[in-house]
């Protein structure tokens, strides 16, 4: 049995379509400037959309400098205002975060670049190619941010 199986089970069951979860990811980033200062400053507005039967959860993440300073749930009709938007089913996002928790970071086809390049589970969309290209310009920062789920899950899972 994998030593991570409990955490993975938590990741699968966790409410990732919440502001609290992304606020925990932002806290993890902001508490670890060393991890991000080697990557340098980033400036981007990214919207993540998690689609499920009952509703689409849309969260806007604003990255400035070495921080994620804004975590705001937004309505589906304003997601085009972000630089880019990452859209996928809730189950696809769960699979991505489970992989991060299991391996300590995203691996194989579960990195955010791989998922969006394949585009079957999670799509990279936007109204401006320059905004879409920010996904590439700040990709390692975004990946490190998402990889923070390892810690964010541990903190949000505590009873």
């Amino acid at each position: 049995m994998s030593p991570y199986s409990l955490e993975v089970a938590h990741a699968n069951a966790a409410a990732i379509d919440t502001v609290a979860f992304f606020a925990a990811l932002a806290d993890e980033m902001n508490a670890n400037p060393d991890r991000f200062s080697v990557l340098g400053e980033a400036e981007m507005d990214a919207v993540l959309v998690m689609q499920s039967d009952d509703h689409d959860f849309c969260i806007n993440l604003r990255f400035e400098g070495m921080r994620c300073d804004e975590v705001v749930e937004v309505l589906a009709d304003v997601v085009h205002l972000a630089d880019f938007c990452l859209e996928g089913s809730l189950s696809a996002w769960r699979a991505m975060f489970s992989d991060i928790v299991e391996n300590g970071r995203a691996t194989g086809m579960q990195t955010i670049n791989a998922l969006t390049l394949l585009g079957e589970e999670i799509k990279l969309v936007g109204s401006d190619p320059m905004g879409i290209d920010k996904f590439s310009r700040f990709n390692q920062t975004l990946q490190e941010f998402l990889d923070g789920a390892v810690v964010a899950f541990a903190s949000t899972m505590k009873p």
């Binding site: 970071r105 691996t107 086809m109 990195t111 670049n113 791989a114 390049l117 394949l118 290209d133 920010k134 590439s136 310009r137 700040f138 990709n139 390692q140 990946q143």
Partner: peptide
């Protein structure tokens, strides 16, 4: 580079392509 990252066999190549990708997009 985006393709390279996707098909990288290990995190070594993944990071290499991701870092290069950031520069290239600029």
């Amino acid at each position: 580079f985006r393709m390279g990252e996707m098909i990288s066999p290990t995190d070594v190549e993944k990071r290499m392509f991701r870092m290069a990708m950031q520069d290239e997009a600029r």
